[in-house]
Write a protein that binds this DNA or RNA. Sequence first.
DNA 1: GATGAATGAGGTTTCATTCAT
DNA 2: AATGAATGAAACCTCATTCAT
Lengths: 214, 214, 214, 214
Amino acid sequence: MKRKVQQKPESPPTEDQPTRDKIVAAALQEFAAHGKEGARVDRVAETAGVNKAMIYYHFRSKDNLYIEVVTSFFQNMVRQVRGAVLETSDLREALQIMARRHVEAFLEAGPIRPIILRELAAPHPEVLAAIADVFTSTGLPQKVMTLMEQGMRGGQYRTVDLRQALAAFVSMSLGYFLIAPIQDAALGIEDRAAFAKERQTVIVDVFLNGLKVR
Amino acid sequence: MKRKVQQKPESPPTEDQPTRDKIVAAALQEFAAHGKEGARVDRVAETAGVNKAMIYYHFRSKDNLYIEVVTSFFQNMVRQVRGAVLETSDLREALQIMARRHVEAFLEAGPIRPIILRELAAPHPEVLAAIADVFTSTGLPQKVMTLMEQGMRGGQYRTVDLRQALAAFVSMSLGYFLIAPIQDAALGIEDRAAFAKERQTVIVDVFLNGLKVR
Amino acid sequence: MKRKVQQKPESPPTEDQPTRDKIVAAALQEFAAHGKEGARVDRVAETAGVNKAMIYYHFRSKDNLYIEVVTSFFQNMVRQVRGAVLETSDLREALQIMARRHVEAFLEAGPIRPIILRELAAPHPEVLAAIADVFTSTGLPQKVMTLMEQGMRGGQYRTVDLRQALAAFVSMSLGYFLIAPIQDAALGIEDRAAFAKERQTVIVDVFLNGLKVR
Amino acid sequence: MKRKVQQKPESPPTEDQPTRDKIVAAALQEFAAHGKEGARVDRVAETAGVNKAMIYYHFRSKDNLYIEVVTSFFQNMVRQVRGAVLETSDLREALQIMARRHVEAFLEAGPIRPIILRELAAPHPEVLAAIADVFTSTGLPQKVMTLMEQGMRGGQYRTVDLRQALAAFVSMSLGYFLIAPIQDAALGIEDRAAFAKERQTVIVDVFLNGLKVR
DNA sequence: GATGAATGAGGTTTCATTCAT
DNA sequence: AATGAATGAAACCTCATTCAT
């Protein structure tokens, strides 16, 4: 199963490996635009401006190209996000940060949304794990759960299954971006960006209010 | 000179269903499993137990097959759902029904989830419209908004943008099913079905409580 | 090799056989436009406004359709042309008539030119014979040869092989229409119709002068 | 898992001619024999002894293969013919050369005749232009017209439209080869080669005599 | 005579992958 | 590392022909 390709430069991250990087960038774009099945190796090569055989030299197959490129894309996200752990003991603030990050990640036209959606339709375990990591590695979900628990113990919040509560908030926040086209069509929303911005406030508000003991 | 190969109905199944219908059923399955690009016309023909050329006789191309089959699948859902309009003036009940329907539609292994997810990644306008129709045609979203509005005017609920509120609830309910694999991985959820059942109660609870004036 | 199709109405030319005639007309047009290989049975059926199976009922195969339709087209020409035999003992007049007929037959956009050209590229003996018949059956070639021969015997014309002379005139007259696109391109001729009309005079003139003893 | 089938160069022929050239040669033959519509890409590949996919690698489609191969075939003719410009100021000699070239080009069984005929039936502008070039690029037509004009000015020849005269001669010479099968059938000619050889003398003779003032 | 559906073979084209240099 | 050419399998689609009604 494991074929050792000649001297694959897996180790020396010395500086720039132009060709390999160009392939990665082009492949990401191609997979985002067309999905794994719809992607064309020729197109990747052309977009990258490299010879098609180079793709097979650096990666081993189209399938493997997909896995490697997409997985490492999310792993890079993890690396960036991990630094930005922040100290707060205010649940509202934590939720706001979470919501803002979702907006930031999903409102841009980057490859993240289509890739995640297609992974959800037909998951590759490695990729899915990397995606999940992006969320957990921020430490935010854990922090949110901790803060909620404290509030519950302090009698401030009603007692709710923590994971259910978290899932509820994440769905509200993140889930919207995935469903957006449908909801926009169904609700007749035209300015998605504005609607999305406004959501940040609304969902934190409704969610927190929903937790509170009355 | 005569070679007998190809897809002959060697098995005696699928009764005497008209050819076109057999194609539709097989195509739906194939598209759900592999996406439009990953789907294979040969496989559809084989699954349907019909001659491959019949697919091109009844539909005109693979692309058109996709559009027609998927669109009409959702249009059929609309037809079924439209009948089940229900009379209630209780917001909680309306939300519960909505949530239950989402569970029903998405917990089964049917074609609906993968198809919707891939449509969200790369939408075909006609299909997307049909999907949106499924939601609006139940009348439920409208009813929910109306009941919320009444509650707000009656001073029972806080004043919130109706569409934002609705979007929040739908995202929580429906969005979860789309994200589920990620959340399961991130939160370490193992029994998705149980977790999903429990959600029905939680989200209605949190949402309604969140709306209430304190 | 010979398959007797049921009751093929080869005999009763009683009156109008709408369907068969419609097929014939449509097929002629299709074959002229696309050639035997490029012709599509479906298109013939559609153009004719009849069911495709009817084509196989009346004719037996696409190939046979071609042979029958094209052959009988030229046979009909023969029938029409045979009536118009004319009495003249003037060579110039005979040549003029010949030339005029060629113009008439080939300047129109009808099916005759493309069909003849393709038959010349890949002949079907039956068809070719029918085409040759169109020319001989007018009696004109024979008459022209006779008149030339008389002129030679009378010392008026130089002695030339009769068939060579005839072939020379026919090539000049008819051949032009076949080559026309090339000559037009090569000589920069723009108004083909005008050029073709003028030719009638020129070729008779040059040819007759060329025959004369000086 | 690996099935070896398809067109492997099992015979040791066609030396080490580059793939592209082998395709060109095979395609020319195929198109001449069957026309663009009747030609089969499989057959071209087999004849050329190359993998079918190479045809699409070097050319892009069957249609494009046709255009490129046929056009460049005539362009090559142009190149060869352009060298052979000859110096003569004798009209008879010029006409004889012209006639001889037509015989040479058309008596052989090469691809030129069927291809030209089918192009005349359904022309591709690019191809037609290349064909016209073959004739003009020899310089012969121009030279013939010039010599005729000089003769007219010198009072030796009757005044005739130069292009009409040229067209007349070319039709006689070249046109014959196109029509040949019909004329042979109509005139009962059996030894076409002999008849064609003799024509060279006759047509120059008749044509020149026809031009002369008496 | 007439129709709509069906069939089987093959047609063109594509594409992941590999090879020689 | 890099390239252009090559390969083999299969993809989508077409088309002449036939069948059941």
